[in-house]
């Protein structure tokens, strides 16, 4: 398939995702578009119009079958990201102590917990809106990078500044284990929630005749 067609279909897939279609619906639209383009032998923009407008027209025609708040962060997403952050923190610090053969514990202070909280807030704003704007091509790559650097800078400053009193002290190996469990739980959750674009199968279809 020529490059312009691939670019167009990629853009269309993204716009459909923004409009609230799930992976199966997007796969169906893309497959039908590929079939039409192969038969028509015309540029995709000429056949379907701009991807954003075409996606909006398709979404409008099946409004009741769309996700109500597409690509939005849920409370579960925020908690999972906070826990994942703590998992990385425990795992990384435990691993450093083991590798450097230090005689120390992995201790977490209020700054670490506040850092996890700040990360969750930073995801709501400005990280996620910046990433959405970038994906929707309303802004350049610099915007999400600047947002990310700003959030990381704030949470590192809080962690450094607010390290007393020690709230949790764990031996390195249990800390690594707990960190790995937290990360694994969050990844399993993310895997279960994933919604990849699916190509339609021959068994897919509707039958309103019976």
């Amino acid at each position: 398939m020529p490059r312009p067609e691939l670019d167009y279909l990629d853009e269309l897939a993204l716009e459909l995702r923004f409009a609230g279609m799930d992976g199966a619906q997007i796969g169906s639209v893309l497959e039908e578009a590929r079939d039409h383009l192969a038969a028509a032998d015309q540029p995709p923009e000429e056949v379907f119009g701009p991807a954003k407008e075409y996606a909006a027209a398709l979404a409008d025609s099946q409004r009741e079958r769309l996700q109500p708040r597409p690509m939005s962060l849920t409370v579960g997403d925020l908690i999972a990201n906070g826990l994942q952050f703590l998992g990385f923190l425990l795992g990384f610090r435990g691993a450093m102590i083991v590798l450097l053969r230090e005689d120390a514990a992995v201790d977490l202070g209020p700054g670490h917990l506040a850092g996890a909280g700040l990360l969750m807030i930073g995801l709501v704003w400005p990280l996620w809106p910046a990433m959405r704007a970038y994906l929707a091509r309303r802004t350049g790559f610099a915007t999400p990078v600047v947002a990310c650097v700003a959030v990381v800078a704030v949470f590192v400053a809080v962690m450094q500044w607010w390290d007393e009193p020690v709230l949790i002290a764990l031996s390195p190996v249990p800390a690594i284990g707990l960190g790995a469990v937290l990360i694994a739980v969050c990844w399993v959750r993310a895997w279960r929630l994933r919604d990849p674009v699916q190509r339609p199968s021959a068994t897919a279809g509707t039958d309103h005749t019976s």
């Binding site: 639209v29 028509a40 056949v47 379907f48 119009g49 075409y54 027209a57 398709l58």
Partner: peptide, 10 residues
């Protein structure tokens, strides 16, 4: 155009 037809079909 496909851009008019497919939304109608959907």
């Amino acid at each position: 155009k496909g851009g008019s037809l497919y939304p109608v079909l959907a």
